[in-house]
């Protein structure tokens, strides 16, 4: 497949109760570690109400790209803009406060803090009323309610991943970046996480999801697909009509 670009807005998000914010546009992004460049000249967008899936083999630069967008890596070249304003010079904590949430690969939560503390950490600053915002989270993640005072490290893998996603959501992010949520999870637990993410997208969050399980995400989950190959974009376009097997063969085999 040759490089294709398509801007067909196939699924308008019902932006219920949400300001029109959260468009993250990155272009010409170059990222690396020391003198090793892992991402060359990548364009990618997070659009409200759209779930963009990033595919590619390991080493293609998917995680590097996510980390760069989240602000954990300095930008070697290119621009990253949130709602038209550049965020490229901002460190991760600034970007987080501006509404860019990132769920890292590997269930990274604070094991020695309680579930409630983990979630509280995700809450935006200033609005210190602990009761209300947390209740909203527990509604979205009912399985966590009985565990609120347990140490996060004592939970099972699936529950920990829930905590990771929930705490990112506690900040009411406009943009959500998720890196391989399936990693280390049973398919059952992964399905649950995916459901939550899709629900979020339906609520108008701009989601970029990195995944290895091609078939799982191409069937009815992804709206838009970006495939990375050795740090560059090999394919970008709508997910509709993509043959998972073909994609796997061409780009991942």
């Amino acid at each position: 497949m040759s490089r294709q670009t398509s801007t067909a807005g196939h699924q308008q998000a019902p932006e219920v109760g949400r300001e029109s914010r959260g468009r993250l546009v990155a272009s010409g992004v170059k990222l690396g570690y020391g003198d090793v460049t892992a991402v060359w000249d990548v364009d990618i967008e997070a659009v409200p109400g759209r779930l963009t899936v990033v595919l590619g083999r390991n080493g293609a630069g998917k995680t590097t790209l996510m980390r760069g967008l989240a602000g954990l890596l300095p930008l070697g070249a290119g621009t990253v803009e949130l709602d038209g304003r550049s965020v490229a010079g901002l460190p991760a904590w600034r970007r987080a406060r501006k509404g860019i949430g990132f769920v890292q690969e590997g269930k990274r939560i604070f094991g020695q803090l309680s579930v409630e503390e983990n979630l509280t950490l995700g809450l935006p600053r200033g609005r210190h009323a602990q009761g209300d915002p947390l209740e909203r989270i527990y509604e979205d993640f009912p399985r966590l309610t009985p565990m609120r005072n347990r140490l996060a490290g004592e939970l099972s893998g699936g529950q920990q991943q829930m905590v990771a996603v929930a705490s990112a959501l506690a900040g009411d992010p406009a943009v959500l970046l998720v890196d391989e949520p399936s990693s280390g999870l049973s398919p059952l637990a992964f399905d649950e996480i995916l459901e939550v993410i899709v629900r979020l997208k339906d609520r108008g969050v701009a989601v970029i999801l990195v995944e290895q399980l091609v078939e799982r995400v191409l069937n009815g989950v992804a709206d838009h697909v970006v495939i990375l190959e050795r740090g560059r974009v090999g394919f970008v376009g709508p997910a509709k009509g993509l043959d998972a097997h073909q994609v796997a063969k061409d780009f991942l085999a």
Binding site: S186, P187, L188, L213, V214, E215, R216, K249, A253
Partner: peptide
Amino acid sequence: NSYLGRSTAEPEQEGA
């Protein structure tokens, strides 16, 4: 039931 869940109703494998 316990591990593979509904995604192995199909004979396709996970991953490529």
